[in-house]
Amino acid sequence: MILVNYIACIILIVLGFYVILTKKNILKIIIGMGLIDYGINLLIISIGFNPGGTAPIFTFTELKPESFFVDPVPQALTLTSIVIGACVTAMALSLVIKIKEKYGTLDADKVRRLNG
């Protein structure tokens, strides 16, 4: 329950949405999608923190039934979310390579042949 972490998460997510809404270059839109993902990852980690707790690893620290450790479930969720973020970036970048070959431009105002 750290206040600085939560404020940083909100700033990252709002900046990510701002970039998707106002920037016209397609590569900047991909960076905005990544910013939203990283902000949510920080939020997940911050939720599982217990102040004064130790790491939940069984063999290298002496973890007895009465010790106090941080929550391990959000750490597993963050790992999955990081992998998903990397895959989204890879797929979006390969689409951008083919768009540049076919349309010749990377401006969102000109990549709009399907409308109406």
Binding site: V88, A92, Y103, R113
Partner: peptide, 11 residues
């Protein structure tokens, strides 16, 4: 228009 449709769906 297939590539731009896929990109919009992804975003």
């Amino acid at each position: 228009g297939a590539l731009e449709a896929a990109f919009k769906y992804l975003v």
